[in-house]
């Protein structure tokens, strides 16, 4: 009964139980510590649509939208001791004439320190903004939103929305590059 094997077994079981309880408590604490950030401001300053070639089929034409936006938000309340990083992303939300609901991420940023959580960006889309039907003609106006994903050191991933354009932004006519 008092063999080395039994002792090692007991000690490691004890240690791992303690560690698990501790990690559980840490992950629960982020539910209590997290507060929702105040709503930020997101506005689209410039938006243009140009035709171009699709990525996979070089002879297929497709519209590309280019969006410039201004973004300010204060996301410091999302940082607590269990916050590893924030994943911020700006997404366009719209429903086209065929009834397809679209949600397209056009910009993202990873924030790893509380000091960097005061966001003030005059940016443009990092990722190509295309339509499933290949054309932005006749597509109703889109809302742009800033969303965040809080990624903890241990525990549950949480999501939220920090800013939204006041009015939906219409897509302009496609311009030819000639």
């Amino acid at each position: 009964m008092h063999t080395i094997y039994a002792r090692v077994n007991n000690v490691s079981a004890m240690l791992s139980t303690c560690l698990m309880v501790l990690l559980g408590a840490v992950s629960l604490s982020s539910f209590l510590l997290t507060t929702t950030p105040p709503p930020g401001h997101l506005s689209v300053t410039n938006i243009k649509v140009f035709p171009g070639n699709a990525r996979r089929y070089a002879n297929k034409n497709q519209d590309f939208t280019f969006v410039n936006f201004n973004l300010t938000a204060d996301l410091t309340p999302l940082f607590n001791w269990n916050t590893k990083q924030l994943f911020l992303y700006v997404a366009a939300e719209y429903e086209n004439k065929q009834g397809t609901k679209n949600d397209v991420v056009i910009w993202d940023r990873i924030v790893r320190r509380k000091e960097d959580a005061q966001i003030s960006v005059a940016g443009r889309n990092k990722y190509v903004f295309r339509e499933v039907s290949a054309s932005f003609g006749d597509v109703p106006p889109a809302h742009y939103t800033l969303k965040y994903n809080v990624m903890p050191y241990v525990g549950v991933l949480t999501y939220g929305e920090a800013a939204r354009t006041v009015n939906p932004v219409p897509f302009p006519e496609s311009q030819d590059l000639s």
């Binding site: 065929q98 397809t100 679209n102 991420v105 499933v132």
Partner: peptide, 10 residues
């Protein structure tokens, strides 16, 4: 990997 685009077809 993270979802970049969703398109809910009618």
């Amino acid at each position: 990997h993270r979802v970049l685009e969703t398109h809910d077809l009618a």
